[in-house]
Design a protein around this nucleic acid. Structure first.
Length: 482
RNA sequence: GCCGCCAUCAUCUAGAGGCCUAGGAUACAUGGUUCUCAACCAUGGCACACCGGUUCGAAUCCGGUUGGCGGCACCA
């Protein structure tokens, strides 16, 4: 039975890296009909942010990555929040001390800081000098009975090599002599990540640990811990990390890394999932566009790349446009609900959708693309006359004539086809190029040079509004000319 | 500094010794369509970091160099 997990820390936003890792863990569990677990790692009380946990679940739910166990849904290994499992970690730390695999360390932070500075001055690598590793039982007892604060440290073997078997990278070897005696239990009796992650992954029967590459160098510590407890090792897979454009580890300094901000900026979850899936992995059928279900059936750790990919918003934009265009109008209307601009009437909103669908990169683009439909437009003589070689009086005359012909159309005949016919009839009687005439009209009616097709736009705008705008444009031209 | 990981177009990638004078996608450029933009179609330029070795033959295997990244906390 495959059991995977993600273990985010509630330190603020829900990070894109979490979505990236979650997607892979989730897909593997779903493919194997196993379980996907979410565990909250809130053992750092200094970095804890109220409400951060809620944001994480909101983000994953938006992406459609549902979990089988976790603080939100419970499960056989509850609780799934580490701060509620403190006794467990303490018990396990003590167990290791009893087995002589760990030891109490009473060194003060001041002392640790001092030796660190000394080591730095001597250009040695900063690490614990193992002062308390060889304390006599009497000394330990003395400290304990004096209620001296302590931490529990792992007794890392001085010799030998710890080998990590990584599904993606193969064998990775670490000299034990290069490993520090890692703190397992902090003086506030909270566990460190290393203790908590190993205890929980074992107790929760996690079979595959799929996490970011930044964890690779702490894997030997974890393996040592598994061995100290006498537990079976899980399968490790270290994913390449996502990078900024400058190739450093992705951070908010260079990118927007908040999952929910992508939602708020008008990205579709299916686009973000598809995009994230393509980072460091490729579809065996070489597909670029595929849904979550397709990803589940085709995802495998074997196809994961070793090179860390660069986050490329351009490609996300492309995918987002594709997914928007794929949406039926009614569905798009639903997705657009949070993005309906102030002052946009419902009937207009519905009519505009097919006109802008293939022009939207994000849902948030809707407002800037459609504003002129329901808000006053700004217009200058220059805007109008710039569209052709013709003079202002001639332009006014042409617009006036067009307006005149439009007025003859009954309200029921106010349709794209009829409007198109009127437009082309005028074109024939003038010596204007199609582009000149229609651009001039477009600017007169919309105030913009790039809009949906002119006559469709006019149909949606309605006879009254179009005539009004045309009249304003020609009067403006005449006035400025005089 | 030490330990570890990595190295194909600008970017995402295909490639697991001959199918590669390196394929696809995005982006870019040009053209087509056209009332503009978008979409769509076509075309184009752009890469195996370097040096050795193994082999009849290397982007693919090995070694080294260089470069990039990650980790070295009572943070995760």
């Amino acid at each position: 039975m495959v059991r995977t997990r993600i273990a985010p820390s509630p330190t603020g936003i829900a990070h894109l890296g979490t979505a990236y890792t979650a997607l892979r863990n989730w897909a593997l569990a779903r493919r194997e009909k196993g379980q996907f677990i979410i565990r909250i790692e809130d053992t750092d009380r200094d970095r804890y942010v109220e409400g951060a946990e809620k944001i994480i679940f909101e983000a994953l739910e938006w992406l459609g990555l549902d979990n089988d166990e976790g603080p939100n849904v419970g499960g056989p290994h509850a609780p799934y929040t580490q701060s509620q499992r403190l006794d467990l970690y303490k018990k396990h730390a003590q167990k290791l001390v009893k087995k002589d695999k760990a030891y109490y360390c009473f060194c003060t932070k001041d002392r640790l800081e001092k030796i660190r500075l000394e080591q730095q001055a001597r250009k040695e690598l900063p690490r614990y000098d193992r002062h308390c590793r060889h304390l006599s039982p009497a000394e330990i007892k003395k400290h304990l009975s004096a209620n001296d604060p302590y931490v529990v440290r792992l007794k890392v073997p001085q010799k030998g090599v710890t080998v990590a078997h990584d599904v993606i990278r193969g064998e990775v070897k670490f000299e034990n002599s290069g490993l520090d005696d890692q703190v397992l239990l902090k003086s506030d009796v909270y566990p460190t990540y290393h203790l908590a992650v190993v205890v929980d992954d074992h107790l929760m029967k996690i079979t595959h640990i799929i996490r970011g590459e930044e964890w690779l160098s702490s894997t030997p510590k974890h393996i040592l811990l598994y061995q100290a407890f006498g537990w079976k090792l899980p399968i490790f897979a270290h994913l390449p990390i996502i990078r900024n454009q400058d190739h450093s580890k992705m951070s908010k300094r260079h990118n927007d890394v908040s999952i929910l901000s992508y939602r708020d900026r008008g990205y579709l979850p299916e686009a973000l999932n598809n995009f994230l899936a393509l980072m460091g992995w490729s579809h065996p059928a070489k597909k670029e566009v595929f849904d979550l279900q397709d990803f589940v059936t085709h995802f495998s750790l074997e196809r994961v790349q070793l090179t860390a990919p660069v986050f490329d918003l351009t490609k996300l934009n492309w995918l987002n446009g594709i997914y928007i265009r794929k949406l039926p109008d009614a569905d798009l209307a639903l997705r657009l609900q949070p993005f309906i601009p102030p002052g946009c009437p419902d009937d207009i909103f519905k009519k505009i959708i097919p006109l802008v669908k293939e022009r939207l990169v994000t849902l948030a683009d809707f407002e800037s693309l459609t504003e002129f439909f329901y808000r006053d437009i700004k217009l200058t003589t220059k805007d109008l006359t710039e569209q052709s070689r013709h003079s202002a009086p001639d332009t006014a005359k042409a617009l006036k004539q067009f307006t005149h012909d439009l007025e003859k159309l009954s309200s029921s005949a106010w349709q794209t086809q009829k409007l198109d016919a009127v437009g082309h009839a005028i074109l024939k009687s003038l010596s204007w190029s199609p582009r000149e005439l229609f651009m001039t009209i477009r600017v007169a009616v919309t105030g913009k040079e790039a809009t949906p097709p002119l006559f469709e736009t006019m149909e949606v705008l309605g006879k009254k509004e179009v005539i009004k705008r045309l009249n304003y444009a020609s009067s403006r031209l005449r006035r400025d000319f005089r």
